[in-house]
Simulated scan of single mutants.
Amino acid sequence: MSLQPHHAWTPAVGGSAHQFTEAWLANRRLSEHTRAAYRRDVTGWLTWCDDNGINPLTATFLDVNTYARRLEARPLAPASVARKLSGVSSWYDFLLKLQAVPVNPVTAADRPHVDRDHSATLGLTPGEVDDLLQAAARGGARTHAMITMLADLGLRVSELIGLDLADMGTERGHRTVRFTAKGGKARRRALTPDTAATLDTWLAERGLAPGPLFRTSTGGRVDRHAVFRLIRRLAADAGITEAGRLSPHSLRHAFATTARAEGVPLEDVQDAMGHADPRTTRRYDRDRHNLDRDPAYTIAAARARRTGS
């Protein structure tokens, strides 16, 4: 595919779609997982353009609309289509800054509506999390430590498997873990005594050689897909309903829901999960519509205390 910009400007990286894409990705602080996802999203768009005789540098919002409708017909969920278009839009924003395109065609496109107050991820009840942890304890030290960290810290799977031994530490009396979160942000979290104990059991077996915290028998880093399979197998062993639909993100949801149900302030849960927008955190709080939490009850109780009624 020839991608020659219709401006006098000539990109230093050359004119191919691959070079544009790699330059765009190199310009952003992203985890390897996010980088791979963005690369797939843009490659999908460029392949569709090539198949339909469309030059991506002169594509219009009508082309993007047609592409989006094709994705929906596959079928893909609205959230998946919106995510793919978001990656393509970011790619065009980069080219716009380089003056390689006159406009970002995704900006005016008809993107699918995504309910920001709802998450399609299947969650877990506190009891189901307990059952999963018991199954993990029977699965060995590494399995127990991995599932415990996902459950008790609400980590993303990419954050978990990206950990190295050097990321473990102690600060002001707290056992801690440092990691790189979404967007390349450096984060740190405290380990509860139980979490630290499961980790110490694994470290006694693993040894203290540098490298991935959770490594395979050959010394490599545990794969994210292996964690997906592990959670579903453990959930099946624990007798959890719809075990085949669970994912590491199910534990992240459970972390947020349980924290809010136990009275942890929204802003503290937001900070723990690394969300820039509190609306994102609220999506994880599956108990937020519980009528027992209606502020009217709190206001009425306060009035009763004041008036003695």
Rank of each mutant, 00 (worst) to 15 (best):
G173F: 10
L98D: 12
T241C: 05
A100S: 14
L150T: 08
L132A: 01
Q99K: 15
H174D: 14
R229V: 05
Y38A: 01
H289M: 03
H33R: 06
H253F: 02
R305A: 15
W202F: 08
G127S: 05
K97S: 09
L124H: 02
W202K: 02
G15P: 02
G183R: 13
H249F: 06
E267T: 03
E159W: 10
F255Y: 10
S16P: 10
T195I: 07
G127W: 01
S250H: 01
V81R: 06
R69T: 07
A235F: 03
G239M: 03
R279V: 08
T60N: 04
V114Q: 12
R28Q: 12
R156E: 06
T307H: 15
Q4H: 00
D237V: 12
T201L: 10
T148Q: 10
L155K: 07
E22N: 01
L266W: 00
P278R: 06
L291R: 07
S31D: 09
G244I: 04
Q99G: 11
A59C: 11
R283D: 06
S90E: 08
I231S: 05
G154D: 06
R83N: 11
T107H: 03
V103M: 02
R35C: 05
D194K: 08
R189F: 09
P126I: 05
A137V: 04
R224M: 09
T47W: 09
R221C: 10
T258R: 11
D51F: 09
P75M: 00
G140K: 09
L163E: 01
N65D: 13
R175I: 05
N290D: 10
A68R: 01
D164K: 05
L203H: 05
G14W: 14
K185N: 14
L153I: 04
L57W: 12
A272I: 01
W48F: 13
R252S: 02
F61G: 01
R111V: 12
P210T: 14
G184D: 15
S2T: 00
D237T: 11
F94A: 05
R245K: 09
G169A: 03
H33W: 07
A259H: 04
Y297W: 14
Y67A: 13
G207E: 07
A8Q: 00
R189H: 14
A136C: 04
S16W: 00
V264Y: 01
D271N: 02
D285E: 07
E205L: 14
R282N: 03
Q99L: 13
G239S: 08
D50Y: 15
R252Q: 03
L155D: 04
L208C: 03
D167H: 11
R187C: 15
L155N: 07
G183H: 13
A68M: 02
R245S: 10
G162N: 04
A17Y: 00
T34N: 03
N27Y: 05
A141L: 12
E205C: 09
L124D: 02
Q270L: 06
W45I: 14
R306T: 15
R116N: 06
N104D: 09
T281M: 04
